[in-house]
Computed example of a mutant assay.
Amino acid sequence: MLTLQRKQHLLEILERDGQIVAKSLSERLGLSEDTIRRDLRQLAKEGLLQRVHGGALPASPAAAPFVERQRISSEAKPAIGRAAAAMIQPGQVVFIDGGTTAVQLARQLPQTLRATVVTHSPSIAIELVAHPHIEVVMIGGRLFKHSIVGVGAAAIEAIGQIRADLYFMGVCSLHPEAGISTGDYEEACVKRALCHAALKTVVLASPEKLDTASPYQIVPLTQIGEIVVNTGVAEALIAPYRKMGIAVTLA
């Protein structure tokens, strides 16, 4: 089998099975593990999958630029935003992450809600400029242009001075084995700090992010309180989280 044919076959297996285990696949195809791993490394460099220990998982479409991500799951994200907005109680202090799903959450906050939103996302702050009763606290730092959020030591230091009731986390990838991950190291550090500074973390997971992986883990799934997903998501994709004791809200 030629290299190009072999790599295409690997992608077909990944799409069908949702993962590749290098050892078992090498035995099934009669190829060396080194050959399989080399192909996986090359495919990962091309952004076609995400390498993990022992094999590979699908790469997240959330690696695309912000403007392009706005067109992905455009019907699911407002529904997720509405469900998340309904969780906020009057008087609470809430962290809202950056990202396209989080923008939908900000848009769904009722005009009568009195609360404080802390965010490192200029996009979220702008959405709430006209809200009559929400106090907005901005976290600064270096602008990570891909997600339009502040990152770096200054952001993490500021987050450490706040205690929030809820953190609505946007993610690139969510997988029952690989956990919660994103594509940038500094962004992962900021999300981790936000999670540690909140009493409860709620993950906003639009359909394209489920069962995918990105390079940098944020926190273990044990630190997550709830996941909000679209009501059309297959039960098989969310059953592992329920089994772990994580609440799942269908939007």
Rank of each mutant, 00 (worst) to 15 (best):
G30E: 05
V117W: 12
S123L: 12
Q161M: 14
P240C: 00
E157T: 14
H146D: 06
P61L: 02
H9T: 13
E226V: 11
V137L: 11
A154L: 12
G150P: 14
G141I: 15
P207S: 02
I246L: 02
P215G: 01
T116N: 01
L166E: 03
N230H: 15
P215N: 03
R41M: 10
L31Q: 11
E187I: 05
E186I: 11
Q8H: 08
H175F: 08
K209A: 02
G18I: 06
G245Q: 04
S74D: 13
L29D: 08
T3Q: 10
A64H: 12
T101Q: 15
E177T: 15
I162E: 06
I72K: 03
I88A: 03
Q42F: 08
L29Q: 03
A164I: 00
Q161C: 06
P240T: 00
R142D: 11
Q161Y: 13
A130S: 13
K45S: 13
E157H: 13
G140F: 10
L11Q: 09
V67Y: 09
R82E: 02
V149N: 04
T3S: 10
G245E: 05
G47F: 00
M244G: 01
Q5I: 06
R69Q: 06
A85Y: 03
L40E: 08
L29M: 05
Q5W: 12
I134Q: 06
G179S: 07
P90R: 10
F144L: 13
G98H: 12
T201Y: 07
A178R: 04
Q108L: 07
A102M: 04
L250S: 06
A84E: 08
G232R: 09
A164P: 05
I80V: 06
A193L: 14
A197F: 10
I246Q: 01
I224T: 08
A154N: 13
I72T: 15
Q111L: 14
A76G: 01
H9C: 09
P240N: 00
R38S: 15
E68C: 10
A59H: 01
A79V: 08
D34V: 14
E75M: 08
Q89W: 05
A236K: 04
Q8D: 03
I36G: 15
M169S: 02
A178D: 00
V52M: 03
L210H: 07
T116Y: 05
S74Q: 07
R71L: 07
R37V: 09
T222F: 04
G98R: 08
T100A: 00
L109K: 10
S123D: 15
F144M: 13
V118T: 14
A76C: 04
E157M: 12
A154K: 15
A155V: 02
V190T: 11
